[in-house]
């Protein structure tokens, strides 16, 4: 029994890590397509989403199979439940990468909207959060996961500031309204991606410590 469960959990871990790598890749590509006004790259991101959707289904089926056949408990239960949740977060992140790629297609066309410097910093921070959350998952590292959770406030702050900047530009130059709205969407999508990275980090704390820290800021602050 335990041998079969161990084998299935190993396969599941392999599948989720593979999905995470694919999602990270489309995320980077979507941001690059925006920065470099690269239409081909943006289209590639949109195209790749189908593959990620299928991978999400496979991971979900694998989790349900483990729950039904092995009725896992303790760490095995926490791992299966965590992967089931991370799976959804990853797929949503890929959808948001597609949304960013679609905005990149619009923003590649003139008139060009001046990209705020802060957007680059927000992008760097968001992708770093995603990378760290996934590292924390692979390395079972709650302190790193908690650090990711704490970074979310900074992304939210960038989001608010960039939106103010966009509004100011549109007020000064009304013909930039349309690309401005696209850029507004991009910052919102980045902010949502950071939220999903935070979710993953919170799930890592649960996976390792068995404690649900979601919606409990005080539990995030505690270093185990």
């Amino acid at each position: 029994m335990a041998k079969h469960l161990t084998r299935d959990l190993e396969n599941l871990q392999h599948d989720i890590v593979s999905l995470a790598a694919a999602v990270e890749e489309v995320l980077y590509k979507s941001i690059r397509s925006l920065q470099e006004r690269d239409i081909d790259l943006a289209r590639e991101v949109i195209h790749d989403d189908r593959r990620i959707d299928l991978q999400e289904n496979e991971v979900e089926e694998e989790c349900l199979k483990i729950l039904a056949l092995h009725q896992p408990v303790a760490i095995d239960l926490r791992r299966t439940a965590t992967i089931l949740k991370i799976n959804t977060d990853l797929e949503r992140m890929a959808d948001l990468a597609v949304d960013i790629a679609e905005r990149a297609l619009v923003l590649a066309e003139p008139p060009h909207f001046p990209i705020p410097d802060r957007l680059q910093r927000m992008t760097d921070l968001t992708t770093s959060m995603v990378r760290q959350a996934l590292d924390a998952f692979v390395n079972l590292d709650p302190p790193q996961a908690r650090r990711v959770c704490r970074l979310d406030d900074e992304v939210d702050r960038y989001n608010r500031e960039i939106i103010q900047e966009i509004i100011a530009v549109i007020r000064r130059t009304p013909e930039l309204l349309e690309p401005g709205l696209s850029l507004f969407s991009v910052t919102r999508h980045l902010e949502r991606i950071a939220d999903h990275a935070t979710n993953i980090a919170e799930d890592v704390v649960y996976l390792v410590e068995g404690e649900i820290v979601r919606h409990r800021p005080e539990a995030v602050e505690v270093e185990a």
């Binding site: 029994m1 408990v73 239960l77 404690e211």
Partner: peptide, 17 residues
């Protein structure tokens, strides 16, 4: 006990290890 046992031996037993 079944979601987060405090003891490693308990965890190993209930997870069939």
């Amino acid at each position: 006990l079944y979601t987060r046992p405090a003891n490693k031996q308990t965890e190993d037993y209930i997870t069939g290890r």
